[in-house]
Each structure stands twice: as structure tokens, then as C-alpha cells.
Design a binder for these strands. Structure first.
Lengths: 192, 192
DNA sequence: CCGAAATCCTAGCACTGCTAGACAAGCGAG
DNA sequence: CTCGCTTGTCTAGCAGTGCTAGGATTTCGG
């Protein structure tokens, strides 16, 4: 049995390599450069190997997205835990969110811009995505205000952050004023 | 000279046909289905004709985006003009924006999601885009609040709308609560 | 009416995601 | 240890993509 276990381990290892390589390549040269051929060459296997791990390119993007979601959730929790008071925590949350999106554009694209074939807002939503939303909710819950459903408030706040992230990265918003925009957003949306 | 004029007219007419057909096809079957071959077949010309009007597919997407921006700006102005009072106008603005995005997903994608090769936030930004932003600013200017730069406020509000639009359409947010989200957003962001 | 110029199309390139079928390596059974 | 078989991998290829070179056809000006 040990032989099979080793094989399974190696297979899982290779799968992680595929995802990590795809992410790296996307971050370096953009998702357009992530072709099955280039990806296969980088992991030093032939293309069909990719399809023995994933149904197709979409699923690879989806895997990168899940990794990213877990990472982002951890970053958000770490950033908010270091702050005192709801207002400071929300500010830190927003800054960290936008910072993550700016520093990992390819991963952010995999999560929200590209089609990774992931389910959302259903019971069959993958755990890391649920957890990412939960990380937002934990902090935003405290500033939703009376009579406002925390989940709905989180959705609105998240949408605002998402809009800022995407529009800034696409060159639609000048990046210099990000700090001011965050301050305005937090001051208005979050009730003490 | 009349002959040349007629030719120019026909050329312009054909260009409009290309853009309209691209938009129609994208709205019917998604942008993935808008290939140069299919598009060429629909306008009953060969592919190279497309390239005598546009540098490439990107520019076609850009042309659809510009059309859409003009349309959206008109819709926003019409909707806000019919309302009395700043709060009602902002609400109408937000509703109209999200409604436009929901009803014309392909056009909205061309404007913001896809790369149409358009410049933004510079002096060489095409006029319809500037005008779209101006349409937002006209209404939001009234509710920015004291000491808040109207342009910056508009950017934040716009980002929030954009986030709601994209996340809803991608299935990330349940569509039922759109009205509630808009109400929350307007109530908090807009200062009476 | 005829040469020149503008217009358009056929054919093809390099690339994409994805897959069938050949091939080799490693396994368990005798 | 050897034989058959499963398992894993690769080569080669398909249909489709955006885009373009070069030839054919139409249309214009003299």
C-alpha cells in the first residue's frame, strides 16, 4: 500500500506545482500568457498531464482563486486583529483588501474577474470563499448599525471595495487618492 | 466629388453596422461568441474588411463601449431630471445605473470589464466617457457634503455602484436584495 | 475605352484549448 | 525471474482564434 500512498503524495505535490506555477506565470505576465503549453513546459510535463488533474483551464484558474481567497482571508484577519476599536479595524480591513488586490492582481482577477467556474452565494460555495466573506463580516458586523442586516451591509461594503480595487487597477481611478477614498468610504458607511 | 462622398457615407454606414452587430451578437451569446469570422459573416463581408475599419477586435469592443457610455449618460440624465430633491435624484441615479448594467451586460462588460484599449482618467479620454462621469458628478455633487471634493466623492460612489453591478451579475450577490442595498448605500453615502 | 487605383476576398500563419491513440514504465501473479 | 496488464505519459492532431499577405475584381479618372 505504501507504493500507492507515495504515488498519491507525488500526484498531490504535482497538482500544487501546477497551481503555483500558473499563479506565478499569471502574476509575471498576465493571465493571457498562461497557456496550457507554456504552463506544461514550466512544470516540465506535457499538456495532457494538466488535464489529468483539472478538467480544463477554468479549473486551474479556480484553484488559484481558492488559494488566493484563503490567503486574503488570513491577511484580513491578521490586519484587523492588530487594531483597537471598530473604526480602526474597518479602516485596516479596507486598506488590506485594496492592498491585496493591488499586490496580487492576477490572483484577484482569478477570484473575481475571470471565470473560474466557482459557485457563489449558494450552499455549494467552496469553503475558502465562504471564509473570506466571513472574515469581512466579522469586522463589519460591528459597524453595520442598528436595524441593518450585517450580511447585507457586508455585501455593500465589499462591493464598494471591489469597485475601488478593479477601477483603480484598470486605470479608471488615479491611484494616488486611494487613501482619501478609503477614509471617505469608511467614515460614511461605518456607523460608530 | 459626389461619388467620393457617397463612398464615405457607405463606409461610415458599414462601420456602424459592424459595431451594432458586434453589440447584438455579444448581447445574445456573450463576447466569447463574437469572433471575427462570425462577425464578418453577419455583416456579409469577409474578415479583412473589419480590419479596414478597426485595428483589431479590441477597437471594436472599444467602439461598443463608447456607444454604451453615451447611452448610459443619457439614461442617467433622464432619470435624475425626473426627480425632485437630491436624495431622490441620487436614488434614481443608482437604480438607473444598476438597471443599465443588468439590462446591457455585454455593453457594460465592453465599458469596464474588457479591454477596449480606451484611455481613462487622462486628458486623452474619449468624450463619451468623460461625459458619463460628468453625468454622475452633476447629481452627486449635490450630496458630497462639506469639505469633500465632489470628484472624489463621485469616484467612491461610482466604485460602489460598479462593485454592486459586477458582483451581482457574476452571481456573487443575490439579485433580490438590490433595492435594499441601493437604499443603504444612498442613505449612508449621500449627505442631505 | 483603357490604364490606374481603390476595394475586396481567398488562403494561410501562428497560436489557442483540448483529446485520441501510441508507447513505455512499473506493478502483481505465477 | 518473467510475463501480462494496468497505469502513466507523450506525440500528434483537431477545430477554432485573431490577424495579414497577395492576388483578383471592380470602379474610377483621363
Amino acid at each position: 500500500m505504501s507504493v500507492q500512498e507515495r504515488k498519491q503524495r507525488e500526484r498531490a505535490e504535482r497538482e500544487r506545482l501546477i497551481v503555483a506555477t500558473a499563479r506565478e506565470l499569471a502574476e509575471q505576465q498576465g493571465w493571457d500568457a498562461v497557456t496550457t503549453r507554456r504552463l506544461a513546459e514550466r512544470i516540465e510535463y506535457s499538456q495532457p498531464v494538466l488535464y489529468s488533474h483539472f478538467r480544463g483551464k477554468r479549473e486551474i484558474i479556480g484553484a488559484v482563486a481558492l488559494d488566493g481567497a484563503a490567503e486574503m482571508a488570513a491577511a484580513l484577519r491578521a490586519a484587523t486583529a492588530a487594531e483597537d476599536g471598530p473604526h480602526a479595524r474597518v479602516t485596516a480591513l479596507a486598506r488590506t483588501y485594496l492592498d491585496f488586490a493591488a499586490r496580487n492582481p492576477a490572483v484577484y482577477d482569478a477570484m473575481f474577474e475571470l471565470d473560474g467556474g466557482l459557485a457563489f452565494a449558494h450552499e455549494d460555495t467552496p469553503q475558502p470563499l465562504k471564509d473570506g466573506f466571513a472574515a469581512l463580516l466579522e469586522t463589519l458586523d460591528q459597524v453595520a448599525g442598528d436595524g441593518v442586516h450585517p450580511g447585507l451591509f457586508t455585501e455593500v461594503f465589499w462591493a464598494a471595495l471591489h469597485g475601488l480595487a478593479t477601477l483603480t487597477r484598470a486605470g479608471r481611478l488615479p491611484p494616488e487618492d486611494t487613501g482619501t477614498r478609503v477614509a471617505l468610504l469608511v467614515d460614511r458607511l461605518a456607523v460608530a
